[in-house]
Amino acid sequence: MDWLQVLVLAVIQGLTEFLPISSSAHLILAPVLFGWVDQGLAFDVALHLGSLSAVVLYFRRDLIAMTVSWTRSVTHREVNDDARLAWGVLFATIPVGLAGLLFKDAIEEQLRSPLYIAAGLIVFGLVLSWADWRHRGKREVNQMNWKDVLLIGLAQALALFPGTSRSGITMTAGLLLGLSREATARFSFLLSIPVIVIACALKSWDLYNATVPIDWAFMAGGVVMSGISAFLCIHFFLVFINRIGMQPFVIYRIILGIALIWLFA
């Protein structure tokens, strides 16, 4: 690797982790399209740590309130909106955690080809488009019920397939359930925290067993640049999502999917 590759991959990860366009697809495709050697497992972990740092920093006040309320719900049986949101995030993470443990290796070995990615980008992009046009919901995060949490959690498990997009599929589910664009984006971003923690833990375990050499300068650069781009992405997405909607991202997904089919079919 060189610093150009570090910068490009970090920015790609920071932007695509939270936009509904599939970060895994872009990280798989970037080395292929630019003719780079694969960035390796250690650098993938660094990129995800940067994204995790960004979302934790951005939602720090919400997370503190959720943690305090969740603790009180356990120790004193006092449940408020913040406690319910914390429990919702935890329960919605269970399906993707179980699916990852069961199918992670099989999916990584068999479904990482550009054509599978293209199919995921196009198909789930069209579903996102339909969900965005079908119903403009007005429900907020604190109006979610346990059925909403379960369905969004089950939808999130589909993100294991490259090209689906974790944020894209959870936003699709939220929109179909009648949440507002901003509410479904906010819940999706909060859901990313335990998911990224699980992904980093699994990749760190694989990395420990692989005992590969690590360039710590590249790792640190990846964390910082991924974190900065992810923080800016979250901020501007939440600011503009009600104005721009999901259609620009759908168009991008379809164009990218068609380009992949043209290049690799």
Rank of each mutant, 00 (worst) to 15 (best):
V89T: 07
V56R: 06
Q39M: 10
N80I: 15
D82L: 05
R84P: 12
G35S: 11
T71H: 15
T67Y: 05
P20L: 04
S22H: 05
V68D: 10
F43C: 08
V32K: 14
S69A: 09
D81H: 10
A25K: 09
L52Q: 01
T93Q: 14
L63T: 04
I64M: 15
W70K: 01
S51N: 01
L90I: 08
L52A: 01
P95S: 08
L57W: 12
E78C: 13
I94Q: 00
V45C: 02
G50D: 01
L41Q: 03
A46T: 05
G88Q: 01
I94E: 00
F103D: 06
V68R: 10
D44F: 04
H26M: 02
A30I: 07
R77C: 15
L63D: 03
P95T: 05
L63S: 06
V89P: 05
A86H: 05
I28C: 02
A92I: 01
S73W: 04
S69D: 11
L47Q: 12
V45I: 13
V74L: 11
G97N: 12
A92T: 01
D62R: 02
A86R: 02
D44V: 11
H48M: 03
S51H: 03
W36T: 09
R61W: 09
G100N: 04
A83L: 09
G50H: 02
W36S: 04
L57T: 13
F103Y: 10
E78D: 14
W36P: 07
F91M: 11
L49D: 05
L85K: 15
G97A: 08
R72K: 13
F59L: 03
V56G: 06
G97M: 02
L101I: 14
L85Y: 06
R60A: 11
R72C: 10
H26D: 12
S23N: 05
W70M: 07
G40V: 06
A86E: 06
S53P: 13
R60D: 04
I28F: 00
H48G: 04
T71L: 15
F91N: 11
A46H: 11
G100P: 05
G35T: 11
P95F: 01
T75V: 14
V96N: 05
L85Q: 09
A65S: 13
D44K: 09
S53W: 13
W36C: 05
H26E: 08
I94F: 00
A30N: 10
L47K: 03
A46Y: 02
M66C: 07
F43V: 04
W87H: 12
H26A: 01
L85N: 14
Y58H: 07
F34W: 09
D44R: 06
T93L: 09
R60Y: 14
L49S: 11
G100H: 08
S23D: 07
N80E: 13
S53T: 08
A42P: 09
A83G: 03
I94M: 02
A30E: 05
H76A: 14
L57V: 09
P20F: 00
H48K: 08
I64E: 13
G100A: 06
L47C: 03
V56N: 03
Y58R: 08
A42D: 03
F103K: 07
G35R: 00
V45G: 00
L102S: 15
N80R: 10
R72H: 08
G100C: 13
F59C: 03
E78G: 14
G40H: 06
A42C: 10
V45W: 00
S22V: 09
G50L: 00
P95V: 10
S73T: 07
T71Q: 15
V55T: 03
V45E: 00
I28V: 14
Q39W: 09
